[in-house]
Design a protein around this nucleic acid. Structure first.
Length: 888
RNA sequence: GCGGAUGUGGUGGAAUUGGUAGACACGCCAGAUUUAGGUUCUGGUGCCGCAAGGCGUGGAGGUUCAAGUCCUCUCAUCCGCACCA
């Protein structure tokens, strides 16, 4: 077969009446094969089907309006895994749903006067269509949206069960309050101290809120990270840091003179070994002692209010000065009898960590150092670096700040009775010592806070409790569920529409039967996404989960963005535990395998006035290795940095356009090529065209071969060397691609598919095939294997090619090809021969040649003889199967 | 400040246990073709050099017969967390 179009047997037609040489029509083929999969219900999963289970899940999308390239990448990866596992004979669960509650729907309601439900469901309809056009092997029969009453009804049932198991509490907490929108904002929605939407100065308010007691599981959530060996190290580290476990000493400092009922207060420190360096005490403005003092001290009261007015953003904290207010109180120094320390109220002390009070050690803590400099407290070092020569106190006099590293230090000041230890031992020894002295006790602290889930929002899952004047806060009865959101709400005024609904709040107290009012707060949308993966296993069940959840979970492969490394994944891990406690699940870790994929990024373009320009309006011209951009009128466009696709920078490529122009297969292929999946991928026009050319190339090779007459079953041809080589290459590709998909190395799998296609292209030429029956047979086999390998990536193209090759059924029903390990080994191998570590020649020997044979062959080489110049090698290293190194 | 990555041609990136650096792709160069359908095919392409040869995985050292890979130091970029005691 030749690739010259002139040689093409134009009159012939392939199977399926396909005209050979015609270009691959992606639109026709993709529509046809999606319909065929649907018709056979190929991807609908039966919970009781035979075969080992495999649950593959991509993080479900928020129905924002349209899918973007990030979705395409995410779902293409998941689909490769799903189709690959299916072909291997697993019973695969690969569902899709919608994370459908949340603020954007309400914002749209306010802006466009459209009901959040209508907006959301219309978006879902659009995006469902877009996802379907990708040809994903998804069981759409299990689809749900979290705003479906059926879903949130079960979530309310879960809430009641959690309440029953004491997994939920109601308490006061400080929240970011937007006074214009009249709602609580999450920390990430506060930008420079202002509401991200309203621009109003955010207030700190104390509100009564519902909390999930995630801190009860802090230790378990931390410990279990060790078992998550198919999670990225990075994510596990981030979660561990977020949980923030530390061990330290909690100890009491005694006031010289009791006041307001306090005769002292507790502090917490992770560095008790620096106790001798204490030079002042600091307590949070919200500390009970500070509050008590402020009652009789107007200046202190004002100080406490003032310091909390400043913003909470990281930058502001960075700039913020250390501020203190001297209370005039003094405490006894616990290790220096007779000495006392001043007590300050300070702005940099947080009430909700430790005890809200510290001892300041300016010599070893930067913040304490800054404070001491300002308020003139002494700086007392307890150690100096080990490599510090000379008199330690002289060193300390010139270098008052010594970083608090625990290793390699020389002690100059330690509490009496503590052994001269270093590092963690010194800390542990001091804690032991303090316990013996009755000064305090070892304590474990976590940074993790309970999860506040109350939101003053309409578009969320109503919290199923009522407020009764007689009975207080009463859980709703299960038989009264679901508490359904009312439809008739208005968004004319800011705040929560549920609050001002004329009738929705009215209800009967489940306890006393009297008139009561409903809770109008709804749940944080992270609650919705904390158990959806369990619901997919039996999405229509009249209870949250059934036995199916235990059968299917954990998710074998979860794929999504790194941005959910902490919140969503930590909340879901908590939920699995809480659901276990409430009897709904017996799998503790919901995601056995996690993969975090990189973003899709694109160049940015700006015109002379600095306006962002869309890629579609930019023409790229290439001159050598330089690229230049122009607008349609020929005006110069500046090519800017490569950034995440965003509407504001207009560097967005719409998946619909790409799928229409090139087809879903091209989009999928490009998303999986080149870049390692965990890294960002740069979308380029040239790359997309390249992927499309490959689609056409595969089609050309297969469709040209398809007309070859392979009906030679009568004569069993002995395979020629060409045929055997092709077989070898094919089996190598099967082995490589299989291994790469197992490891989610899609870019490497793609490269190996390219190699096989290159081999097929150069091997299956018309003249070669003409006289070689065995090559025809081998070629057919090889192409069928290739199509199986391609199918997870480009399923439509693979089906179309499979059909013209007269493959049985559909490739989506075919088993994954197996390779013969014997064929991976070559008969003869070529070893590199190095002289002094530099490659100078090759030697070809039998694959199973022994050391002596290889040595002799290598020494006989001209290049080696020349280098030896008649002498003997100093050393001769032979690694069979690897390399020969001659040292002269 | 704490924690975690990453660094390889013009570009994206390959490279089991240390064993041929640059697979595969994009781009580029040259050539071929009765070039319709965002062509196709052949060859070339790390750098310097006419060549022999030399140099080459952010930089500097080291271990080794052999280092992208191991060790020490260092630079740069990115990400996460953060007045967390």
């Amino acid at each position: 077969m030749s690739h010259n179009p002139t040689d093409m047997p134009a009159s012939k037609t392939g199977a399926d009446g396909h005209e050979v040489g015609r270009r691959y029509d992606h639109q026709a083929a993709e529509t046809k094969w999606r319909a065929a999969w649907d018709e056979h219900k190929l991807f609908e999963t039966d919970n009781d089907a035979p075969g080992e289970k495999y649950y593959v899940l991509e993080m479900f999308p928020y129905p924002s309006g349209r899918i973007h390239m990030g979705h395409v990448r995410n779902y293409a990866m998941g689909d490769v895994v799903a189709r690959y596992r299916r072909a291997q004979g697993y019973n695969v669960l690969h569902p899709m749903g919608w994370d459908a509650f949340g603020m954007p729907a309400e914002n749209a309601a306010m802006k466009n006067k459209v009901h959040p439900a209508k907006w959301t469901y219309e978006n879902i309809a659009t995006m469902r269509g877009q996802l379907k056009s990708m040809g994903l092997a998804i069981d759409w029969s299990r689809e749900f949206a979290t705003c479906d009453v059926d879903y949130y009804a079960q979530q309310q049932a879960l809430f009641l069960d959690f309440l029953d198991k004491d997994l939920i509490t109601r308490k006061n907490a400080k929240v970011n309050w937007d006074p214009v929108d009249m709602t609580v904002l999450a920390n990430e929605q506060v930008i420079d101290g202002k509401g991200w939407r309203s621009g109003a100065e955010v207030e700190q308010r104390e509100l009564t809120q519902w909390f999930f007691k995630i801190t009860d599981y802090a230790e378990d959530l931390l410990q279990s990270l060790d078992g998550l060996d198919r999670w990225p190290e990075k994510v596990r580290t981030m979660q561990a840091n977020w949980i923030g476990k530390s061990r330290g000493l909690q100890m009491n400092f005694e006031l010289t003179e009791p006041t307001n009922g306090f005769d002292g207060f507790d502090i917490y420190t992770t560095r008790p070994d620096t106790l001798a360096g204490a030079s002042f005490m600091a307590i949070a403005p919200e500390h009970p002692l500070a509050k008590a003092l402020a009652k009789d001290d107007a200046a202190l009261a004002k100080f406490a209010v003032d310091v909390r007015k400043s913003g909470t953003s990281a930058e502001e904290l960075e700039r913020a000065e250390k501020l203190g207010y001297d209370t005039g109180l003094r405490v006894k120094h616990p290790v220096k009898p007779g000495e006392t320390l001043p007590v300050y109220v300070a702005n940099f002390i947080l009430m909700d960590y430790g005890t809200g009070a510290i001892f300041g050690c300016p010599a070893h803590d930067q913040r304490d150092h800054d404070f001491a400099r300002k308020y003139d407290c002494p700086i007392i070092a307890t150690f100096v670096p080990m490599d510090q020569d000379g008199e330690p106190n002289a060193f300390v006099a010139t270098e008052p700040f010594v970083p608090a590293k625990t290793e390699n230090v020389r002690w100059i000041n330690q509490p009496a009775g503590v052994e001269k230890a270093t590092g963690q031992e010194a800390i542990d020894a001091t804690i032991d010592w303090a316990e013996r002295q009755g000064l305090g006790s070892g304590q474990v602290q976590y940074r993790l806070r309970d999860w506040g889930i109350s939101r003053q929002r309409y578009w969320g899952c109503p919290i199923p409790v009522v407020h009764c004047d007689t009975c207080g806060v009463v859980p709703e009865k299960k038989e009264n569920l679901p508490i359904v959101l009312p439809d008739d709400v208005d968004f004319e005024t800011p705040g929560n529409p549920l609050d001002r609904h004329p009738t929705w709040r009215d209800c009967i107290c489940p306890k006393c039967g009297g008139a009561a009012t409903r809770e109008t707060d709804t749940m944080d949308t992270f609650v919705d996404s904390s158990w959806y993966f369990a619901r997919f296993t039996d999405p229509k069940a009249p209870e949250p989960t059934t036995k199916a959840a235990n059968d299917w979970l954990a998710v074998d492969q979860y794929i999504g963005g790194i941005e959910h490394a902490i919140l969503h994944l930590l909340y879901s891990r908590f939920f699995a535990r809480a659901m276990g406690e409430a009897g709904h699940l017996n799998v503790k870790e919901p995601f056995a395998g996690l993969f975090t994929q990189g973003m899709v990024v694109h160049e940015t373009y700006r015109d002379g006035e600095g306006n962002w320009i869309e890629p579609a309006d930019v023409e790229i011209r290439v001159d050598g290795n330089e690229r230049f951009a122009f607008d349609p009128a020929g005006g110069k466009i500046e090519i800017g940095s490569i950034e995440k696709m965003s509407k504001s920078k207009k560097n967005v490529v719409d998946p619909d356009d790409i799928i229409e122009r090139f087809g879903a297969d091209t989009a999928r292929w490009f998303m999986l090529s080149d870049s390692p999946p965990e890294r960002d991928v740069i979308w380029t026009e040239a790359g997309a065209e390249g992927a499309h050319r490959f689609v056409q190339r595969v089609w050309r090779i297969v469709s040209e071969f398809a007309v070859t007459d392979v009906s030679t079953s009568g004569e069993m041809a002995k395979p020629t060397k060409t045929a055997l080589d092709l077989r070898r290459s094919t089996h190598k590709a099967i082995a490589g691609v299989t291994d790469d998909i197992e490891k989610l190395g899609f870019n490497r799998a793609v490269a190996k598919i390219y190699e096989l296609v290159n081999t097929l292209s150069s091997t299956l030429k018309t003249d070669a095939l003409a006289g070689d029956t065995s090559l025809k047979i081998e070629g057919r086999q090889s192409i069928l294997s290739l199509l199986s390998l391609i199918a997870p990536f480009m399923p439509h193209l693979a089906e179309e090619c499979w059909s013209i090759m007269n493959g049985s059924n559909m490739v989506a029903q075919a088993r994954w090809p197996v390779y013969d390990p014997a064929l991976l080994k070559e008969d003869e191998i070529t070893l590199p021969v190095q002289i002094n570590g530099k490659k100078r020649a090759d030697v070809t020997v039998a694959a199973d040649a022994d050391k002596a044979t290889i040595e002799a062959a290598a020494l006989a080489l001209d290049a080696v003889q020349r280098a030896l110049d008649g002498g003997q090698p100093k050393k001769l290293i032979v690694v069979p199967g690897r390399i020969v190194n001659v040292v002269v």
